[in-house]
Amino acid sequence: MTTDDLVREGTVNPSLDDALELAAALQANLNAVVLGTPGAVVAATTAVLAAGHLLIEDVPGVGKTMLAKAVAVSIGSRLARIQGHPDLLPSDITGVSVYSASSETWEFRPGPVFAHVVLFDELNRTPPRSQAALLEAMEERQVTVDGESWPLPEPHLVLATQNPIDQSGTFPLVESQMDRFLLATRLGYPDEATETRLALSHGAQPSLALLSPVCTPSGLAAAQAAVAEVPVSPSVASYAVAIVRASRADPLIRLGASPRAAIGLLAAARAHAVIRGRDFVLPDDVKAVSVGVLAHRLVTDAAPVGAFEAGIVAVEAILERVPSPRP
């Protein structure tokens, strides 16, 4: 498939070529704001292009919210923000039906989830009931209130941040909800020089204000569609499946990755290939996204504290073990 074949109807961002441009511009935007953590930037860009949801997990104060904000601004769409707290109700997320006196009917007032980009801060401070409300929205891309379904806008991207669960006052995310996130990433602490710069420049807020959108929501949707059509050769696909299956056979892992994980692995690999400027997927792409896609989905024997770290180690061990395809 050549670039020309990827040109489709439409007025904005018609081709994979535009997706390439978008990826580069988005990365540049995020790098301008999120300093010192290139891995997280790649993960965020991958999630945006693969139309997946992103979970950012780290201790407070390293710029999780900043990254999410930067993504939202860069995509040029409305940003709806939900601050997670123990009192958050499901209707605070999805919206409510209110009685209209003039029409004498119940009217649905959409909640903040009806935005292109939803930033869910401190997801694990939200009670499970509210987390479940988000679950349907993320997977079904629709909201059901009072028996009526309301479709969410396309593209729809949930960026959730959470503190590691050793912090007090948190509700661990249920396993099925973890599976809804395409990628999980962590930011880590910036190095000394970057931290000094951040401290001097009052954080990243000023640079956030300078950001300009790199595309429109419809442009992003076209780019996502183009990315989803990037061809994957059978050997690479079976490599991804082999990695997922290896996670189920691993004695250290209590619950391996689901078939959805394999789908997500390939979707993320496609996006990663586009970020690397290719219109085909290499085993290297699968390798590069495996930790991000799989680590948070695995349930290991390790204590809930540090489960994510245990997942990372397990996935890396799997990558060392599974033979990569020979051309």
Binding site: S235, V236, V281
Partner: peptide, 10 residues
């Protein structure tokens, strides 16, 4: 180029 030949449709 070899990767491109092996995994791409080129």
């Amino acid at each position: 180029l070899v990767e491109r030949a092996a995994y791409g449709s080129h």
